[in-house]
Design a protein around this nucleic acid. Structure first.
Length: 472
RNA sequence: GGCCCCUUAGUCUAGUGGUUAGGACGUCGGCCUCUCACGUCGAAGACAUGGGUUCAAGUCCCGUAGGGGUCACCA
Protein backbone atom coordinates (compact mmCIF):
# COMPACT_ATOMS: atom_id res chain seq x y z
CA UNK A 1 0.00 0.00 0.00
CA UNK A 2 2.20 2.73 1.25
CA UNK A 3 5.60 2.86 2.81
CA UNK A 4 4.78 5.86 4.93
CA UNK A 5 5.33 5.13 8.59
CA UNK A 6 2.43 4.36 10.83
CA UNK A 7 3.05 5.15 14.48
CA UNK A 8 0.85 5.14 17.52
CA UNK A 9 0.38 6.36 21.03
CA UNK A 10 -1.43 3.86 23.21
CA UNK A 11 -2.12 5.19 26.70
CA UNK A 12 -3.85 3.32 29.47
CA UNK A 13 -6.63 5.48 30.86
CA UNK A 14 -5.69 4.98 34.47
CA UNK A 15 -4.92 8.61 35.24
CA UNK A 16 -4.01 11.92 33.75
CA UNK A 17 -1.48 12.33 30.96
CA UNK A 18 1.87 12.75 32.61
CA UNK A 19 5.01 14.39 31.37
CA UNK A 20 6.59 11.13 30.27
CA UNK A 21 3.56 9.96 28.35
CA UNK A 22 3.27 13.33 26.70
CA UNK A 23 6.81 13.13 25.45
CA UNK A 24 6.28 9.64 24.09
CA UNK A 25 3.18 10.86 22.29
CA UNK A 26 5.07 13.86 20.99
CA UNK A 27 7.93 11.84 19.53
CA UNK A 28 5.45 9.64 17.72
CA UNK A 29 3.33 12.51 16.53
CA UNK A 30 6.35 14.50 15.39
CA UNK A 31 7.65 11.56 13.44
CA UNK A 32 4.32 11.03 11.72
CA UNK A 33 4.07 14.70 10.80
CA UNK A 34 7.66 14.87 9.74
CA UNK A 35 7.36 11.90 7.42
CA UNK A 36 3.83 12.37 6.23
CA UNK A 37 2.94 9.18 8.03
CA UNK A 38 -0.06 8.29 10.16
CA UNK A 39 -0.49 8.88 13.86
CA UNK A 40 -2.85 6.44 15.52
CA UNK A 41 -4.33 6.89 18.96
CA UNK A 42 -5.39 3.72 20.73
CA UNK A 43 -6.70 3.28 24.24
CA UNK A 44 -5.40 0.29 26.15
CA UNK A 45 -8.17 -0.11 28.66
CA UNK A 46 -7.93 -3.81 29.38
CA UNK A 47 -7.18 -3.16 33.02
CA UNK A 48 -10.82 -2.60 33.85
CA UNK A 49 -10.14 -2.05 37.52
CA UNK A 50 -8.12 1.05 36.93
CA UNK A 51 -9.42 2.42 33.65
CA UNK A 52 -11.95 5.23 33.63
CA UNK A 53 -13.80 7.20 31.01
CA UNK A 54 -12.75 10.31 32.86
CA UNK A 55 -9.11 9.48 32.31
CA UNK A 56 -9.77 8.92 28.62
CA UNK A 57 -11.18 12.43 28.35
CA UNK A 58 -8.40 13.93 30.42
CA UNK A 59 -5.75 12.36 28.23
CA UNK A 60 -7.41 13.46 25.01
CA UNK A 61 -7.75 16.97 26.38
CA UNK A 62 -4.11 17.13 27.32
CA UNK A 63 -3.00 15.83 23.94
CA UNK A 64 -5.15 18.40 22.16
CA UNK A 65 -3.93 21.16 24.40
CA UNK A 66 -0.37 20.32 23.47
CA UNK A 67 -1.40 20.69 19.85
CA UNK A 68 -1.41 17.08 18.79
CA UNK A 69 -4.01 15.65 16.49
CA UNK A 70 -4.47 12.06 15.38
CA UNK A 71 -5.40 10.50 12.10
CA UNK A 72 -7.13 7.48 13.55
CA UNK A 73 -8.48 7.08 17.03
CA UNK A 74 -11.35 6.18 19.33
CA UNK A 75 -13.21 9.42 18.83
CA UNK A 76 -12.75 9.75 15.09
CA UNK A 77 -12.55 6.14 14.02
CA UNK A 78 -10.48 4.88 11.14
CA UNK A 79 -9.98 1.85 8.93
CA UNK A 80 -8.51 -0.34 11.66
CA UNK A 81 -10.91 0.32 14.51
CA UNK A 82 -12.28 0.05 17.01
CA UNK A 83 -9.53 1.84 18.92
CA UNK A 84 -10.50 0.79 22.43
CA UNK A 85 -8.93 -2.53 23.29
CA UNK A 86 -11.94 -3.71 25.26
CA UNK A 87 -13.92 -3.49 22.04
CA UNK A 88 -11.49 -5.74 20.25
CA UNK A 89 -11.65 -8.86 22.38
CA UNK A 90 -12.65 -11.20 19.52
CA UNK A 91 -9.58 -10.12 17.60
CA UNK A 92 -7.23 -11.19 20.37
CA UNK A 93 -9.13 -14.45 20.73
CA UNK A 94 -8.74 -15.11 17.03
CA UNK A 95 -4.99 -14.57 17.11
CA UNK A 96 -4.68 -16.74 20.19
CA UNK A 97 -6.67 -19.54 18.56
CA UNK A 98 -4.39 -19.40 15.57
CA UNK A 99 -1.39 -19.78 17.82
CA UNK A 100 -3.00 -22.71 19.63
CA UNK A 101 -3.88 -24.41 16.36
CA UNK A 102 -0.28 -24.15 15.28
CA UNK A 103 1.00 -25.45 18.58
CA UNK A 104 2.68 -22.14 19.41
CA UNK A 105 0.45 -21.44 22.36
CA UNK A 106 -1.52 -23.59 24.75
CA UNK A 107 -4.13 -23.44 27.45
CA UNK A 108 -2.84 -23.44 30.98
CA UNK A 109 -5.12 -24.60 33.78
CA UNK A 110 -2.87 -23.75 36.68
CA UNK A 111 -4.55 -21.51 39.21
CA UNK A 112 -3.04 -18.30 40.36
CA UNK A 113 -2.79 -19.78 43.83
CA UNK A 114 -0.84 -22.80 42.68
CA UNK A 115 1.57 -20.58 40.84
CA UNK A 116 1.95 -18.29 43.83
CA UNK A 117 3.04 -21.24 45.92
CA UNK A 118 5.71 -22.11 43.40
CA UNK A 119 6.78 -18.51 43.20
CA UNK A 120 7.19 -18.22 46.94
CA UNK A 121 9.09 -21.43 47.10
CA UNK A 122 11.48 -20.29 44.41
CA UNK A 123 11.95 -17.07 46.27
CA UNK A 124 12.72 -18.91 49.47
CA UNK A 125 15.32 -20.98 47.70
CA UNK A 126 16.68 -17.84 46.10
CA UNK A 127 15.91 -19.24 42.71
CA UNK A 128 14.61 -17.37 39.73
CA UNK A 129 10.95 -18.30 39.30
CA UNK A 130 9.89 -19.36 35.89
CA UNK A 131 6.65 -21.05 34.88
CA UNK A 132 7.67 -24.71 34.56
CA UNK A 133 5.52 -25.48 31.55
CA UNK A 134 3.24 -27.79 33.48
CA UNK A 135 0.41 -27.52 30.98
CA UNK A 136 2.43 -27.58 27.82
CA UNK A 137 1.29 -31.00 26.67
CA UNK A 138 -2.27 -30.86 27.93
CA UNK A 139 -5.14 -30.97 25.44
CA UNK A 140 -7.15 -27.83 24.80
CA UNK A 141 -10.36 -27.87 26.83
CA UNK A 142 -12.09 -24.49 26.54
CA UNK A 143 -14.71 -25.52 29.06
CA UNK A 144 -12.18 -25.44 31.88
CA UNK A 145 -11.04 -22.11 33.31
CA UNK A 146 -7.72 -21.36 31.66
CA UNK A 147 -5.28 -18.76 30.45
CA UNK A 148 -3.42 -18.96 27.16
CA UNK A 149 0.33 -19.07 27.24
CA UNK A 150 2.73 -18.46 24.40
CA UNK A 151 5.40 -21.08 24.09
CA UNK A 152 8.79 -19.42 24.34
CA UNK A 153 11.95 -21.02 22.99
CA UNK A 154 14.32 -22.19 25.69
CA UNK A 155 17.61 -21.76 23.95
CA UNK A 156 19.16 -19.15 21.74
CA UNK A 157 18.61 -15.43 21.86
CA UNK A 158 16.81 -12.67 20.04
CA UNK A 159 18.61 -9.55 18.90
CA UNK A 160 16.99 -6.52 17.41
CA UNK A 161 18.17 -3.08 16.40
CA UNK A 162 16.70 -0.45 18.64
CA UNK A 163 16.45 2.87 16.89
CA UNK A 164 17.79 4.74 19.87
CA UNK A 165 19.71 2.14 21.83
CA UNK A 166 21.30 0.10 19.08
CA UNK A 167 21.45 -3.69 19.16
CA UNK A 168 19.75 -5.33 22.11
CA UNK A 169 20.05 -9.02 22.82
CA UNK A 170 17.80 -11.06 25.06
CA UNK A 171 18.74 -14.64 25.90
CA UNK A 172 15.73 -16.94 25.56
CA UNK A 173 16.40 -18.79 28.78
CA UNK A 174 15.32 -15.68 30.68
CA UNK A 175 11.90 -15.91 29.09
CA UNK A 176 8.97 -17.93 30.32
CA UNK A 177 5.81 -19.07 28.61
CA UNK A 178 4.06 -15.75 28.74
CA UNK A 179 0.34 -15.47 29.49
CA UNK A 180 -1.25 -13.78 26.51
CA UNK A 181 -4.91 -14.12 27.37
CA UNK A 182 -6.29 -13.95 30.86
CA UNK A 183 -8.92 -16.27 32.30
CA UNK A 184 -11.55 -13.65 31.56
CA UNK A 185 -10.48 -13.34 27.96
CA UNK A 186 -8.63 -10.06 28.35
CA UNK A 187 -5.32 -9.88 26.54
CA UNK A 188 -2.23 -9.02 28.50
CA UNK A 189 -0.24 -6.01 27.51
CA UNK A 190 2.38 -7.81 25.47
CA UNK A 191 -0.24 -9.58 23.41
CA UNK A 192 -2.90 -6.92 23.09
CA UNK A 193 -0.48 -4.24 22.04
CA UNK A 194 1.17 -6.56 19.58
CA UNK A 195 -2.03 -7.81 17.99
CA UNK A 196 -3.27 -4.26 17.61
CA UNK A 197 0.02 -3.11 16.20
CA UNK A 198 -0.23 -5.87 13.62
CA UNK A 199 -3.85 -5.12 12.80
CA UNK A 200 -3.25 -1.40 12.68
CA UNK A 201 -0.18 -1.92 10.54
CA UNK A 202 2.11 -0.04 12.86
CA UNK A 203 5.60 0.14 11.37
CA UNK A 204 7.46 1.91 14.16
CA UNK A 205 6.88 1.53 17.86
CA UNK A 206 8.31 4.34 19.96
CA UNK A 207 7.57 3.80 23.62
CA UNK A 208 9.07 4.11 27.06
CA UNK A 209 12.32 2.56 28.05
CA UNK A 210 10.55 0.34 30.54
CA UNK A 211 9.42 -1.82 27.64
CA UNK A 212 12.82 -2.95 26.37
CA UNK A 213 12.48 -6.22 28.17
CA UNK A 214 9.15 -6.87 26.49
CA UNK A 215 10.53 -6.45 23.04
CA UNK A 216 12.17 -9.82 22.48
CA UNK A 217 9.02 -11.61 23.64
CA UNK A 218 6.94 -9.56 21.30
CA UNK A 219 9.27 -10.17 18.40
CA UNK A 220 9.03 -13.91 19.04
CA UNK A 221 5.26 -13.59 18.92
CA UNK A 222 5.32 -11.52 15.75
CA UNK A 223 7.35 -14.28 14.21
CA UNK A 224 5.02 -16.92 15.58
CA UNK A 225 2.14 -15.14 13.92
CA UNK A 226 4.04 -14.66 10.71
CA UNK A 227 3.64 -10.91 10.96
CA UNK A 228 6.20 -8.31 9.94
CA UNK A 229 8.14 -6.98 12.92
CA UNK A 230 8.03 -3.19 13.31
CA UNK A 231 11.00 -1.04 14.13
CA UNK A 232 11.36 -0.29 17.82
CA UNK A 233 12.58 2.90 19.46
CA UNK A 234 12.84 2.93 23.23
CA UNK A 235 12.74 6.35 24.73
CA UNK A 236 14.82 7.01 27.84
CA UNK A 237 13.00 7.67 31.06
CA UNK A 238 12.35 11.03 32.58
CA UNK A 239 13.66 11.28 36.11
CA UNK A 240 13.10 13.59 39.05
CA UNK A 241 15.82 15.71 40.63
CA UNK A 242 16.95 12.76 42.73
CA UNK A 243 17.40 10.66 39.60
CA UNK A 244 14.59 8.32 40.38
CA UNK A 245 11.63 7.87 38.11
CA UNK A 246 9.58 11.05 37.91
CA UNK A 247 6.59 10.89 40.22
CA UNK A 248 4.21 13.12 42.11
CA UNK A 249 6.59 13.68 44.93
CA UNK A 250 8.85 15.53 42.51
CA UNK A 251 6.12 18.08 41.95
CA UNK A 252 3.58 18.48 39.20
CA UNK A 253 3.74 15.67 36.68
CA UNK A 254 0.52 16.09 34.78
CA UNK A 255 0.42 18.06 31.58
CA UNK A 256 -2.71 19.86 32.64
CA UNK A 257 -1.03 21.08 35.82
CA UNK A 258 1.32 23.07 33.62
CA UNK A 259 -1.56 24.36 31.57
CA UNK A 260 -3.20 25.55 34.77
CA UNK A 261 -0.01 27.22 35.95
CA UNK A 262 -0.03 29.29 32.81
CA UNK A 263 2.49 27.62 30.58
CA UNK A 264 2.16 27.93 26.83
CA UNK A 265 1.52 24.56 25.17
CA UNK A 266 4.19 25.22 22.57
CA UNK A 267 6.73 25.90 25.29
CA UNK A 268 5.91 22.69 27.10
CA UNK A 269 6.29 20.82 23.83
CA UNK A 270 9.54 22.63 23.15
CA UNK A 271 10.98 21.72 26.53
CA UNK A 272 9.76 18.13 26.55
CA UNK A 273 11.10 17.35 23.12
CA UNK A 274 14.44 18.91 23.94
CA UNK A 275 14.64 16.65 26.95
CA UNK A 276 16.18 13.66 25.24
CA UNK A 277 16.50 15.04 21.76
CA UNK A 278 18.74 17.71 20.34
CA UNK A 279 19.40 19.67 17.21
CA UNK A 280 22.90 21.05 17.55
CA UNK A 281 22.98 23.96 19.95
CA UNK A 282 19.39 25.04 19.35
CA UNK A 283 17.08 25.48 22.30
CA UNK A 284 13.97 27.27 21.14
CA UNK A 285 11.87 25.58 18.49
CA UNK A 286 8.47 26.36 17.09
CA UNK A 287 6.25 23.36 16.48
CA UNK A 288 6.97 23.76 12.78
CA UNK A 289 10.69 23.63 13.50
CA UNK A 290 10.24 20.43 15.45
CA UNK A 291 8.20 18.87 12.69
CA UNK A 292 10.92 19.85 10.28
CA UNK A 293 13.87 18.61 12.33
CA UNK A 294 12.74 15.79 14.56
CA UNK A 295 14.44 12.45 14.09
CA UNK A 296 15.23 9.40 16.15
CA UNK A 297 18.90 9.62 15.31
CA UNK A 298 19.32 12.47 17.72
CA UNK A 299 17.32 10.98 20.53
CA UNK A 300 19.78 10.29 23.33
CA UNK A 301 20.10 6.97 25.07
CA UNK A 302 20.36 8.32 28.58
CA UNK A 303 17.62 9.06 31.05
CA UNK A 304 17.03 12.76 31.66
CA UNK A 305 16.19 14.75 34.73
CA UNK A 306 13.10 16.89 34.40
CA UNK A 307 14.16 20.44 35.20
CA UNK A 308 11.25 22.78 35.96
CA UNK A 309 13.59 25.77 36.04
CA UNK A 310 14.59 25.29 32.48
CA UNK A 311 11.03 24.72 31.37
CA UNK A 312 10.20 28.04 33.01
CA UNK A 313 12.94 29.68 31.00
CA UNK A 314 11.68 28.14 27.77
CA UNK A 315 8.19 29.32 28.56
CA UNK A 316 9.48 32.80 29.23
CA UNK A 317 11.23 32.85 25.87
CA UNK A 318 7.98 31.85 24.22
CA UNK A 319 5.97 34.50 26.05
CA UNK A 320 8.39 37.16 24.99
CA UNK A 321 8.12 36.16 21.38
CA UNK A 322 4.34 36.32 21.33
CA UNK A 323 2.64 39.50 20.09
CA UNK A 324 1.31 41.55 23.00
CA UNK A 325 -2.26 41.08 21.78
CA UNK A 326 -1.80 37.35 22.04
CA UNK A 327 -0.29 37.56 25.50
CA UNK A 328 -3.21 39.69 26.64
CA UNK A 329 -5.79 37.39 25.12
CA UNK A 330 -4.29 34.36 26.83
CA UNK A 331 -3.89 36.19 30.13
CA UNK A 332 -7.57 36.98 30.55
CA UNK A 333 -8.70 33.66 32.02
CA UNK A 334 -5.84 33.64 34.47
CA UNK A 335 -6.73 37.06 35.86
CA UNK A 336 -10.38 36.09 35.97
CA UNK A 337 -9.54 32.88 37.75
CA UNK A 338 -7.89 34.98 40.43
CA UNK A 339 -11.02 37.09 40.73
CA UNK A 340 -9.50 40.08 38.97
CA UNK A 341 -11.66 42.02 36.49
CA UNK A 342 -9.26 42.00 33.56
CA UNK A 343 -10.62 42.34 30.08
CA UNK A 344 -9.04 41.92 26.70
CA UNK A 345 -8.61 45.63 26.18
CA UNK A 346 -5.88 48.22 25.73
CA UNK A 347 -5.12 48.27 29.43
CA UNK A 348 -4.52 44.53 29.53
CA UNK A 349 -2.40 44.72 26.42
CA UNK A 350 -0.22 47.30 28.12
CA UNK A 351 -0.02 45.14 31.23
CA UNK A 352 0.83 42.12 29.11
CA UNK A 353 3.49 44.02 27.28
CA UNK A 354 5.39 45.00 30.39
CA UNK A 355 4.55 41.89 32.41
CA UNK A 356 5.81 39.28 30.02
CA UNK A 357 9.39 40.49 30.49
CA UNK A 358 8.99 39.92 34.19
CA UNK A 359 6.77 36.88 34.54
CA UNK A 360 7.65 33.46 33.26
CA UNK A 361 4.12 32.10 33.25
CA UNK A 362 0.63 33.54 33.24
CA UNK A 363 0.28 32.32 36.79
CA UNK A 364 3.24 34.43 37.82
CA UNK A 365 1.90 37.33 35.83
CA UNK A 366 -1.34 37.43 37.76
CA UNK A 367 0.42 37.04 41.06
CA UNK A 368 2.92 39.78 40.33
CA UNK A 369 0.59 42.30 38.74
CA UNK A 370 -2.63 41.98 40.58
CA UNK A 371 -2.25 45.58 41.73
CA UNK A 372 -3.22 46.72 38.28
CA UNK A 373 -6.67 45.28 38.95
CA UNK A 374 -6.98 45.33 42.71
CA UNK A 375 -6.08 47.62 45.59
CA UNK A 376 -2.41 47.57 46.50
CA UNK A 377 -1.09 45.42 49.28
CA UNK A 378 1.40 47.70 50.92
CA UNK A 379 4.66 46.03 51.84
CA UNK A 380 5.46 47.26 55.37
CA UNK A 381 9.17 47.43 54.72
CA UNK A 382 8.68 49.42 51.54
CA UNK A 383 6.35 51.72 53.36
CA UNK A 384 8.79 52.31 56.16
CA UNK A 385 11.63 53.01 53.81
CA UNK A 386 9.99 55.13 51.14
CA UNK A 387 6.72 56.58 52.41
CA UNK A 388 8.48 58.95 54.77
CA UNK A 389 8.04 62.57 55.65
CA UNK A 390 10.95 63.30 53.33
CA UNK A 391 9.04 61.83 50.45
CA UNK A 392 5.95 63.87 51.04
CA UNK A 393 6.86 66.94 49.02
CA UNK A 394 7.99 64.76 46.16
CA UNK A 395 4.76 62.79 46.14
CA UNK A 396 2.81 66.02 46.23
CA UNK A 397 4.73 67.39 43.31
CA UNK A 398 4.12 64.30 41.26
CA UNK A 399 0.48 64.28 42.25
CA UNK A 400 0.05 67.84 41.11
CA UNK A 401 1.94 67.14 37.92
CA UNK A 402 -0.12 64.09 37.00
CA UNK A 403 -3.30 66.01 37.78
CA UNK A 404 -2.26 68.85 35.53
CA UNK A 405 -0.87 66.96 32.56
CA UNK A 406 -3.01 67.19 29.45
CA UNK A 407 -2.18 63.56 28.64
CA UNK A 408 -0.15 60.87 30.33
CA UNK A 409 2.44 60.60 27.64
CA UNK A 410 5.80 59.07 28.38
CA UNK A 411 7.80 62.15 27.43
CA UNK A 412 5.65 64.36 29.61
CA UNK A 413 5.88 62.03 32.56
CA UNK A 414 9.59 61.79 32.13
CA UNK A 415 9.91 65.53 32.22
CA UNK A 416 7.69 65.72 35.26
CA UNK A 417 9.88 63.28 37.19
CA UNK A 418 13.11 64.88 36.05
CA UNK A 419 11.95 68.31 37.02
CA UNK A 420 10.78 67.06 40.39
CA UNK A 421 14.16 65.50 41.02
CA UNK A 422 16.08 68.54 39.83
CA UNK A 423 14.00 70.93 41.89
CA UNK A 424 14.98 69.18 45.07
CA UNK A 425 18.45 68.13 43.98
CA UNK A 426 17.58 64.43 44.07
CA UNK A 427 18.58 61.48 41.96
CA UNK A 428 15.81 60.20 39.75
CA UNK A 429 15.44 57.07 41.85
CA UNK A 430 14.62 59.10 44.91
CA UNK A 431 11.53 60.33 43.16
CA UNK A 432 10.49 57.17 41.42
CA UNK A 433 10.74 54.82 44.38
CA UNK A 434 8.24 56.52 46.70
CA UNK A 435 5.83 56.86 43.79
CA UNK A 436 6.34 53.20 42.94
CA UNK A 437 5.55 52.15 46.48
CA UNK A 438 2.49 54.38 46.50
CA UNK A 439 1.19 52.99 43.23
CA UNK A 440 2.12 49.32 43.46
CA UNK A 441 2.65 48.66 47.14
CA UNK A 442 6.19 47.42 46.61
CA UNK A 443 9.63 48.34 45.40
CA UNK A 444 9.77 46.28 42.22
CA UNK A 445 7.59 46.98 39.24
CA UNK A 446 7.64 47.85 35.57
CA UNK A 447 8.84 51.31 34.63
CA UNK A 448 7.07 53.95 36.63
CA UNK A 449 5.70 55.75 33.55
CA UNK A 450 4.15 52.53 32.35
CA UNK A 451 2.62 51.97 35.74
CA UNK A 452 1.03 55.41 35.69
CA UNK A 453 -0.25 54.96 32.18
CA UNK A 454 -1.74 51.60 32.95
CA UNK A 455 -3.44 52.76 36.12
CA UNK A 456 -4.74 55.90 34.46
CA UNK A 457 -4.97 59.35 35.89
CA UNK A 458 -7.81 58.81 38.30
CA UNK A 459 -6.42 55.69 39.95
CA UNK A 460 -2.92 57.16 40.06
CA UNK A 461 -4.15 60.25 41.89
CA UNK A 462 -6.17 58.15 44.26
CA UNK A 463 -3.24 55.97 45.18
CA UNK A 464 -0.96 58.97 45.61
CA UNK A 465 -3.54 60.58 47.88
CA UNK A 466 -3.78 57.37 49.87
CA UNK A 467 -0.03 57.33 50.34
CA UNK A 468 0.05 60.97 51.28
CA UNK A 469 -2.68 60.28 53.79
CA UNK A 470 -0.65 57.49 55.33
CA UNK A 471 2.30 59.77 55.85
CA UNK A 472 -0.01 62.22 57.51
C1' G B 1 19.62 -11.54 42.96
C1' G B 2 19.09 -12.98 37.23
C1' C B 3 18.66 -10.46 32.66
C1' C B 4 18.77 -5.78 29.88
C1' C B 5 20.21 -0.72 29.32
C1' C B 6 22.93 3.75 30.62
C1' U B 7 27.47 6.96 32.28
C1' U B 8 30.47 14.70 29.03
C1' A B 9 29.82 20.42 34.61
C1' G B 10 24.28 20.74 39.72
C1' U B 11 20.77 19.91 35.15
C1' C B 12 19.62 19.34 29.56
C1' U B 13 23.03 18.46 25.83
C1' A B 14 26.90 19.10 21.17
C1' G B 15 30.62 15.79 19.95
C1' U B 16 30.53 9.81 15.07
C1' G B 17 39.78 9.03 16.43
C1' G B 18 43.33 14.75 16.01
C1' U B 19 38.57 20.55 19.30
C1' U B 20 41.85 25.77 23.84
C1' A B 21 35.82 19.66 24.83
C1' G B 22 30.92 23.87 22.16
C1' G B 23 25.83 25.61 23.57
C1' A B 24 21.65 26.16 27.12
C1' C B 25 19.32 26.33 32.23
C1' G B 26 20.98 27.43 37.02
C1' U B 27 24.95 29.94 40.01
C1' C B 28 28.46 34.18 40.75
C1' G B 29 30.35 39.06 39.09
C1' G B 30 30.51 43.72 35.77
C1' C B 31 27.68 46.97 32.59
C1' C B 32 22.80 49.12 31.42
C1' U B 33 19.03 51.50 34.72
C1' C B 34 13.62 55.14 38.20
C1' U B 35 13.16 49.64 41.10
C1' C B 36 12.53 44.77 39.19
C1' A B 37 12.99 42.17 34.95
C1' C B 38 15.01 42.10 30.04
C1' G B 39 19.51 42.82 27.51
C1' U B 40 24.74 42.63 27.46
C1' C B 41 29.86 41.32 28.88
C1' G B 42 32.51 37.95 31.81
C1' A B 43 33.64 33.86 35.51
C1' A B 44 33.53 29.23 37.96
C1' G B 45 32.07 24.30 36.46
C1' A B 46 32.36 18.02 32.87
C1' C B 47 34.46 13.44 29.49
C1' A B 48 32.80 7.87 36.48
C1' U B 49 37.21 4.57 36.99
C1' G B 50 41.16 0.92 35.54
C1' G B 51 43.23 -1.54 31.56
C1' G B 52 43.90 -2.20 26.43
C1' U B 53 43.79 -0.96 20.64
C1' U B 54 46.10 3.32 18.02
C1' C B 55 51.17 7.82 16.07
C1' A B 56 46.65 9.87 18.44
C1' A B 57 40.68 8.05 22.58
C1' G B 58 35.31 11.85 25.40
C1' U B 59 34.93 9.05 20.83
C1' C B 60 36.72 1.82 19.59
C1' C B 61 37.30 -2.97 22.94
C1' C B 62 37.36 -5.35 27.94
C1' G B 63 36.91 -5.07 33.25
C1' U B 64 35.24 -2.30 37.70
C1' A B 65 32.08 1.07 40.08
C1' G B 66 27.64 3.79 40.08
C1' G B 67 22.68 4.61 38.22
C1' G B 68 18.17 3.01 35.88
C1' G B 69 14.74 -0.65 33.94
C1' U B 70 12.49 -5.42 34.26
C1' C B 71 11.41 -10.09 36.29
C1' A B 72 2.31 -10.52 37.20
C1' C B 73 -3.90 -13.74 34.91
C1' C B 74 -0.61 -4.41 35.50
C1' A B 75 0.48 -1.53 31.44
Amino acid sequence: MSDKPRVRFAPSPTGYLHIGGARTALFNWLWARRTGGTFVLRVEDTDRERSTQQAVEAIFDALRWLGMDWDEGPDIGGPHGPYFQTQRLPVYRRYAEQLIAEGKAYACYCSKEELDVLRKQAEKEKRQFKYPGTCRGKPYDPSRRHVIRFRMPETGATTYQDLVKGPITTPHDTLQDEVILRGDGMPLYNFGALVDDIEMKITLVARGDDHVNNTARQILMYEGLGAPVPVFAHLPMILGADKTRLSKRHGATSVTAYRDMGFLPGAVVNYLVRLGWSHGDDEIFTIDDLVKYFDFEHVGATAGVFNPEKMLWVNHEWMRQLPREEVARRAVPFFRQAGLPAEDDEKLRHVADVARERAKTFGEMVQQFRYFYAPIQLDPKAKEKFLTADAKPTLSTIRAGVAGLPALETAALEKLFQDAAAARGLAAGKVAQPVRVALTGGTASPGIYDVIQILGREETLKRLDDALGLIG
